[in-house]
Amino acid sequence: MRLLAWITGLPLAVLVAVFAVANRAEIHFDLWPLPFGVDLPGYLAVLAPLGIGLAGGFLLGWASGLKARLRAGSLRRRLDAAEKTQSQA
């Protein structure tokens, strides 16, 4: 599994680095309801929302499985307690 992570992660990191180097030009974003704008490098304007979306998706996926993980932990503790009392009897 670790090898698969390296095989996919390393080329992806190289692609992100090449993208960042190729898109260093400044982009001006007007934040419409606000009276000012922001100047960002082009790569940051693309990669920052991508990173925020990935982090948000990870957190939502983790949170959606939280109830099942808590229930599994509770059932495991009950099973361990039942096995312990069974072995004592």
Rank of each mutant, 00 (worst) to 15 (best):
G57P: 00
R71S: 03
A25I: 12
A25V: 13
G42A: 15
W32Y: 11
W6I: 01
L66F: 03
V14D: 07
P11T: 12
A63M: 01
L44H: 02
H28T: 15
V18K: 06
E26N: 09
A5W: 13
G37F: 03
R69W: 09
L15H: 14
A45P: 08
L10V: 15
L60E: 01
G9C: 10
G37S: 04
S64E: 00
F19L: 07
L3R: 05
A89Y: 11
K67E: 00
R71Y: 07
I52Y: 10
W62R: 05
A55D: 01
G73L: 05
L40N: 11
S87P: 00
Q86E: 12
S87F: 06
A17T: 07
V38F: 14
L4W: 11
H28C: 08
L70S: 00
A22G: 11
A89P: 06
F29K: 05
G61W: 07
Q86I: 07
D39R: 13
V46H: 07
L15A: 15
T85N: 08
Q88G: 12
Q88F: 11
R78E: 10
W32N: 14
E26G: 04
D39Q: 12
W62H: 02
P33T: 07
D80E: 03
F19S: 10
P41L: 09
P49E: 05
R24A: 10
N23W: 12
R71F: 05
V18H: 04
M1A: 13
